Computed example of a mutant assay.
Amino acid sequence: MASARPPRGTAWCGGCGAYLAVPPGARSVRCALCRAVTRVERRGHHGGHGGALGFIKGLISAFAPPPPLTPSAGAAAAASYYPRVSGKKRALLVGISYAATGYELKGTVNDVNCMSFLLRERFAFPADCILVLTQENGDPYRVPTRANLLAAMRWLVEGCSAGDSLVLHFSGHGVQKLDVDGDEADGYDEALCPVDFERAGVILDDEI
């Protein structure tokens, strides 16, 4: 890990060393990659717009794309920068419209169709390796209920190994729920809302 300070509004993960975006005023943040919780160094008070501005500047600095490779860097450097894709490809695409409810969303099925086209035409995903769950599907096992979503997520990762390409796309509602097991730095779990969430409940990030 580098010894220099990260840009304002960010921190280095104490577990894997990745850059983390730190909301203004936060005292700790959890890494999405290794899930380690890192305490944030306080660098003085920046209230109001100053704190938000520092946060935004830090994000821009930390997550800006790398500079373009010079011709002298060669093809080997480019190959090492971009991820290598090999092995099996599998995708789970979920689009929930919540039709006939007060939470109805427009365009979720179109999102799924566009993502399916992109994966097949641009990234050579076999059509039979793409599982689509939509509320409009006539197959009861391909409607995005809570039970079907959990089963589909198990399908997505079942038998996977290093080098596989797995995609999970969810177009629908999400919520935050009060964390009860103490593993969230902000005190809240994130959750997905299946089509039957009012009856069967949401899917917490702990379950994924």
Rank of each mutant, 00 (worst) to 15 (best):
R27G: 14
S28R: 12
V29S: 08
V29N: 07
V29D: 06
R30H: 08
C31M: 07
L33N: 13
L33D: 13
C34H: 11
R39W: 11
H45I: 12
H46Y: 12
G48C: 00
H49L: 14
H49W: 07
G50Y: 11
G51N: 12
A52F: 12
G54W: 01
I56L: 11
L59W: 03
S61A: 15
S61Q: 11
P65I: 00
P66H: 12
P66Q: 13
P66E: 14
P66C: 10
P68I: 07
T70F: 12
T70L: 15
A73F: 09
A75H: 08
A76L: 09
A77D: 06
A79I: 05
Y82R: 02
R84F: 04
R84Y: 00
S86F: 04
G87L: 08
K88V: 06
K88G: 10
K89R: 13
R90I: 02
R90N: 02
L92R: 04
L93A: 08
V94L: 11
G95L: 01
Y98A: 09
A100Y: 14
T101I: 07
G102D: 06
Y103A: 14
L105F: 04
T108C: 03
T108V: 00
V109R: 01
N110K: 15
D111Q: 12
V112K: 04
N113M: 13
C114K: 11
C114V: 15
M115H: 04
S116T: 11
F117E: 02
F117M: 05
L119H: 00
L119D: 03
L119T: 04
R120P: 05
R120T: 07
R122W: 11
R122A: 15
F125W: 06
F125I: 02
D128F: 13
D128H: 15
L131C: 15
V132I: 04
V132Y: 03
L133A: 03
E136I: 04
N137E: 07
G138V: 01
G138S: 11
D139E: 15
D139M: 14
P140W: 07
P140L: 10
Y141S: 10
V143C: 09
